[in-house]
């Protein structure tokens, strides 16, 4: 159900998961357990410019707590968390941050 080695997807790949949030980069960490989703997100953030909207997709419920905490520690702004269900009923959270947005 997951693509563990996925890096950044184009937003179109996952438009169904978070229709309201216009992310510039989406990190797919579905099927991975914390802290891996946060680590994948941080790796994507390292290569992105300030102001970038970055989303991470996770099936681990801890991500919805840990991504905002990571953003606070790194000076990014937490934007939103959306919850949806995959076809097999698995819950998926999309957590979005804006890089450097806390300044």
């Amino acid at each position: 159900m997951s693509t563990p080695d996925a890096g950044g997807h184009s937003p179109a790949d996952t438009a169904d998961v978070h229709a309201e949030i216009a992310a510039d980069v989406v990190v797919d960490a579905r099927g991975l357990r914390c802290p891996i989703p946060v680590i994948r997100l941080a790796a994507a953030a390292r290569d992105a410019a300030p102001g970038t909207m970055l989303s991470v997709l996770s099936t681990d419920p801890a991500a919805r707590h840990d991504v905002p905490a990571w953003a606070r520690m790194r000076g990014h702004a937490f934007v939103a968390t959306d919850e949806s269900a995959a076809d097999d009923g698995t819950r998926v959270w999309s957590v979005t941050v804006r890089l450097g947005g806390a300044q």
């Binding site: 357990r33 914390c34 802290p35 946060v38 681990d60 419920p61 801890a62 707590h65 840990d66 905002p68 905490a69 990571w70 606070r72 520690m73």
Partner: peptide, 24 residues
């Protein structure tokens, strides 16, 4: 209080309510 140390996937509701990292 990290989730991977509990029997469920859910991390500590205390850490979550505080808005601090639940992993590590």
């Amino acid at each position: 209080g990290s989730a991977c140390t509990a029997s469920t996937l859910e991390p500590s509701h205390v850490l979550a309510a505080m808005g601090v990292l639940t992993h590590g």
